[in-house]
Each structure stands twice: as C-alpha cells, then as structure tokens.
C-alpha cells in the first residue's frame, strides 16, 4: 500500500484529489469558485496538450483552434439545431479528432519552427472562419450557449440542486464535474505515458531518427497523440462554452493558443502535474496583477521572461529538483 502511494500515478492522483476536495472549503465566494473552475478547464486542456508538446516534443501554436471548434460546434448544434448537448459534444469531438487526423499526417512531418508555423496557421484559419461566418457563429459579438443538459436535466451555474440531501449551487455542481474530469484526465494521461504509445513518444522526442531505426512507426504515434490532444481541447471547449453560457471568437484566437502553450512550458514540460500548476498560475496571475493597473502588462511580461530564463525546465520540475537535491547528495555519499 505504502509502496503504491509512492508511485507518481497513485500518489500524485491521490494528492491531486485531496487538494481538489479541500479547495472548495477554503474559497470564500462564488467568484473564487468560478476561477477554480476555469483553472480546471484550462488544466485539462494543457494536460492533453502536454502529451503532444512535452512528451512527443511536437510544438502546437494552434490548439485554441481545436478548442474553439469544439465550443462553437457544441453551441451551434445544441442552440440553433436543438441537439442534445452531450450528443453535440461527442459529435464535435469526433469532427475535431477527424480533422486532426487528416491534417496531422502532413503537418507532423514538419520539424521545429515549421511545425509551429503550420499549427499557428491552422489555428488562425479556424479563428478567421469563426469570426467571419457571423450568420452561423454570431461573429465577434459572440454567441449565447444553452446550459449543459442530459435527458432534460439542465445544469446551469445559476440554479440550485439537491444531491443526496445536500443543497448545492449550480457553480458548485460544475466544480465537482470539472474536478472529477481533471482527475480522470490526469489518470488517462499517466496511463498513456506509461503505455507502449508513451514510450514510443518519448523515443520520438529523444531522437526521431533513432526511434525510426529501431522500428518505431513515428508518424503513426505522432498523429495518434495529436488527435488525442485535439480531442481533449475540443471536449473542454464544448464544456467551457456550456459553463460560461457565452462565447466569442477569442476562444479560438492566436492569443489563446499562446496562453495554452505558455501554461505547458511555464509549469514544466513533460510533467503532468507541472502543467496543471502552469494553468493555475496563468489563470490566476491576471487576477492578482489586476490591481497593478497600467503596470499589469509590464509585470506579466517580466514574470514570464524571468521564470523561463531561470527555470527553463518549468516551475514544478525545478522546484522538485531543489527539494530532491539534498537527498541525492546523501545517497551519493552513502554510495561512496
């Protein structure tokens, strides 16, 4: 039992669950709970994105495009065409996954900056289409989204619900939903990393040619992880649209893509818990810096630069390294 807890999978997951369970009791108002939900949504997206960027070493500067597609398809299908939101969400995820599959083949042949360029282009094209086709998407003025519902049971952040005799606000139910999904997403990501796919991906990251030489079908695995991360983004796009009840093309924009990749790099590439920390910081930072007013932009840029210069591996890996250092010393001394 103790042994099991020490493995990153069970240990990390139970730590994460503990934090998620304790967290709502430390929050004093609905605004803080709302921010927590947004952190959760972003965290799930970047856990998916991290599989691509952190483990397979493939940069995507267009992931917000997938998130935007999911959000808008859900909003339009459930709103304009009256589909059930769950069906719309699944359909959107299949479409986005399909698109990622089709385009992943040629795009993922590209290396380094060309891959960044291509994914950036893909994201921008999606954003332009959403912004332009206003008869369908509402254009830059945005689109109102129906609340999430299942078999006629609607989950609106504004209603009251009763579960097992406890009265909960809609926001609290949303928190439970997103928190559970986060734990599930982390579990899924850790499983993928430990699977043959994950090992193949790490081989790709290390040296793609070496991986090919030993017989790994690198293209196959890269496309696979591209599709997985796109589906993560699409599903969270759909859920975030239903949660906020209103979306604008910003969700698919270039800036949002940059924000997502920054969460991954800042928190710690290839560290599933690290990128969650990245999401926490990047969602909270503007709220904390808001009091600085005109200095906000300056401070944000500076923090981003300084963190990346001094912790190029990202926050969590650097912090853990610091914590582990003394211990390593003792072990090496023992060995000596």
């Amino acid at each position: 039992m103790m042994q099991a807890l020490k493995s990153p999978r069970l240990g990390g997951l139970s730590a994460l669950s503990c934090v998620l369970i304790i967290l709502p009791f430390t929050l004093s108002n609905s605004f803080q709970l709302d921010v927590a939900i947004q952190v959760g949504i972003a965290a799930i997206v970047v856990v998916g994105l991290n599989l691509l960027v952190g483990f397979a070493g493939q940069i995507s500067l267009g992931h917000a495009g997938f998130m935007g597609m999911g959000a808008y398809m859900s909003a339009i299908l459930s709103g304009t065409y009256g589909w059930s939101p769950l069906l719309a969400l699944i359909f959107a995820a299949i479409c986005v996954g399909g698109l990622a599959f089709l385009i992943g083949g040629p795009i993922l042949r590209l290396k380094g900056h060309y891959l960044s360029m291509a994914t950036l282009g893909l994201g921008i094209i999606i954003a332009i289409v959403i912004n332009t086709e206003s008869w369908l998407t509402g254009g830059p003025d945005g689109l109102v989204v129906e609340p999430l519902s299942l078999f006629g049971w609607a989950l609106s952040p504004f209603d009251e619900y009763h579960l097992l005799g406890i009265s909960l606000s809609g926001t609290q139910v949303w928190y439970i939903l997103i928190a559970s999904l986060l734990v599930f997403a982390v579990w899924l990501a850790l499983n993928i990393i430990d699977s043959p796919t994950g090992r193949a991906l790490r081989a790709v990251h290390g040296s793609e040619i070496a991986a090919q030489v030993v017989g790994v079908n690198t293209a196959h695995y890269k496309v696979k992880v591209f599709v997985i991360s796109a589906v993560f983004a699409s599903v969270m796009g759909s859920l975030s649209a239903h949660y906020t009840g209103f979306i604008t093309p910003n969700i698919a924009g270039f800036h949002h893509s940059i924000e997502l990749i920054t969460m991954v790099v800042l928190g710690g590439m290839a560290s599933t818990y690290g990128v969650i920390l990245g999401a926490v910081i990047l969602v909270l930072l503007p709220q904390v810096l808001a009091d600085l007013q005109e200095f906000e932009m300056l401070a944000f840029g500076l923090i981003l630069m300084v963190t990346m210069i001094f912790m190029p591996k990202g926050l969590l890996p650097t912090l853990l390294n610091l914590l582990n250092k003394p211990k390593q010393k003792t072990t090496s001394e023992e060995a000596a």
Binding site: T262, L298, L302, M308
Partner: peptide, 27 residues
C-alpha cells in the same frame, strides 16, 4: 542566460519580452 533551453522555452521568453516591451511602451 537561457541559451541551453528548449526551442519552445525560447519562444516563450521572446513572447514574454514582447509583452514586456509593449507594456513599457504604453507606460
């Protein structure tokens, strides 16, 4: 100072620099 960092890390550093310069210019 970050010369051994990853490609993506360097991208994020220059993005940070661009936000910083923009913030400085508007001040």
């Amino acid at each position: 100072p970050a010369k051994n960092a990853d490609v993506v890390t360097l991208i994020i550093i220059t993005i940070g620099a661009s936000i910083f310069l923009r913030g400085l210019a508007q001040l």
